[in-house]
Amino acid sequence: MKAFKESIGTTSTPRVFKLEPSTFKEFADCVHATVGNTSFAPLSSVAVPTIFTRFREGEFELLERMGIALPQVLHAEQTYEMLEILHPAEEVSFKTSLASVFEKKGKGSNMAFLVFETEFIRTLDSQTIARAKSTMVYREGVS
């Protein structure tokens, strides 16, 4: 657990993505978002905000660097701040950092809460369009 705190401040490799309209639709269909089919104009072009969950590679990279396998963690909390609308085919870059680590005593084992922060920046104007904060729980003794 102590080793995790030493990783605070580490940052993932920067990545770039561009989402095609078909990708928006596939995600929306899977999570039953039907609003894109309505005539409610201001919303009709808005992606389901959780589409940003597609871009957790930075988290996964940092977990791997800390020697944590994916099955060893559970998702505890997730926050999204949507500053601008994400449009199809826009190029966006992102990177993730380990912002903090705190520990709690669980029922059967110690748990470490790993807080990751990701910033999404639109390439065209370098504008931050969204921020994500994920809290993952690592349970000691589960391997």
Binding site: V31, F40, V48, T53
Partner: peptide
């Protein structure tokens, strides 16, 4: 995140 996404969809549906 599947449940979280369904909740976002429900939120948007409620707004409409």
């Amino acid at each position: 995140m599947l449940t979280a996404s369904l909740m976002h969809s429900r939120a948007i549906e409620a707004m409409v």
